[in-house]
């Protein structure tokens, strides 16, 4: 029971790291980016390939799993994403689905369609006993890492100059521009960091979620659910949404396996219909 809860929390935190970038960019640019998972895929493959082909230790691959997708995100944002901010959601959806399809096929072509497996360092393997509850070491590691990231992000958003500018831009772009804030640069930096975080999430998730070319499609709905349920006003919303989904999904699969992902999709539809601005959005 508690084990399931902890598994769910670990899963939820991972989902948060994976989707927080999407949440911020959606709030900032109102851009529907279905290709967010592609950056997670890049991160996952960076880690898997570095470990399996170059023998780099797991922890040492993580910075690369962040930096490479971040750089990729920055380049793509400035070149092909930017012209689409002013376009219709339909255009954005078509465009980003196109990117997903390309990523899936290209990964398949370059690396192969098989699942990527990694060997975690021994200190992260197995379970230990915590007051009678069996806790996976890697799960706990995930919770700690993700919690640190959450605290860090919250700090950046609420305490730094960049954070206040970002919040101003999310609130009202025109006003922010009027105040002399370079919204374009904020977009680019945010997009890059969001992509990097997705990549890091992908790397951390190789063990837990699996990593194969169709990863961006398989998790697309989950990212979108986190964002739609959590809303795009703050970090708290997506964070709680990710935790709820993580716990619900793990518990659902454990207790009522025949229902499968039903629960999650049904939950998403209900919330979308009742609270289209997100579960925790400022009420209306």
């Amino acid at each position: 029971m508690l084990t399931i809860l902890i598994d769910g929390i670990a899963y939820g935190m991972l989902l948060f790291v994976l989707s927080v970038g999407l949440s911020v960019t959606m709030g900032l640019m109102n851009f529907v980016n279905l290709a967010h998972g592609a950056f997670a895929l890049v991160g996952g493959y960076v880690t898997a390939l570095l470990m399996n082909r170059a023998g780099v230790p797991f922890l040492a691959t993580l910075p690369f799993a962040f930096l490479i997708p971040a750089a990729l995100g920055a380049v793509l944002e400035r070149t092909i994403y930017k012209p689409l901010y002013s376009r219709s959601h339909l255009d954005q959806v078509l465009f980003s689905i196109g990117l997903v399809f390309m990523t899936v096929a290209a990964t398949d072509f370059l690396v192969g369609s098989e699942q990527q497996l990694i060997q975690l360092p021994t200190w992260l393997q197995g379970r230990f006993d915590l007051g009678g509850v069996a806790v996976g070491r890697y799960r706990l590691f995930l919770i700690v890492i993700c919690a640190l990231l959450v605290v860090g992000l919250q700090y950046v958003l609420s305490r730094t100059r960049f954070g206040s500018r970002l919040r101003a831009a999310v609130d009202d772009q025109r006003v922010a521009r009027g105040l002399g804030i370079d919204v374009g640069t904020i977009f680019a930096v945010t997009f890059a960091v969001g992509s990097g975080l997705a990549g890091l999430g992908g790397a951390l998730g190789v063990e837990l979620l699996g990593m194969e070319p169709t990863f961006p499609l398989r998790f697309m709905v989950y990212f979108l659910i986190v964002v739609t349920i959590g809303g795009t006003d703050s970090l708290t919303g997506p964070f709680l949404a990710a935790l709820i989904i993580g716990v619900a999904d793990v518990a659902g699969k454990y207790y009522v396996p025949q229902v499968g992902a039903f629960l999650i999709y049904a939950l998403m539809i209900v919330i979308l219909v009742l609270r289209p601005q997100g579960l925790l959005a400022r009420g209306r």
Binding site: L94, I97, G98, V100, F101, M102, A105, A106, D108
Partner: peptide, 11 residues
């Protein structure tokens, strides 16, 4: 890799 081309066409 037909899917790649669909994607490219969309983009």
């Amino acid at each position: 890799y037909w899917q790649f081309w669909i994607g490219l066409i969309l983009v």
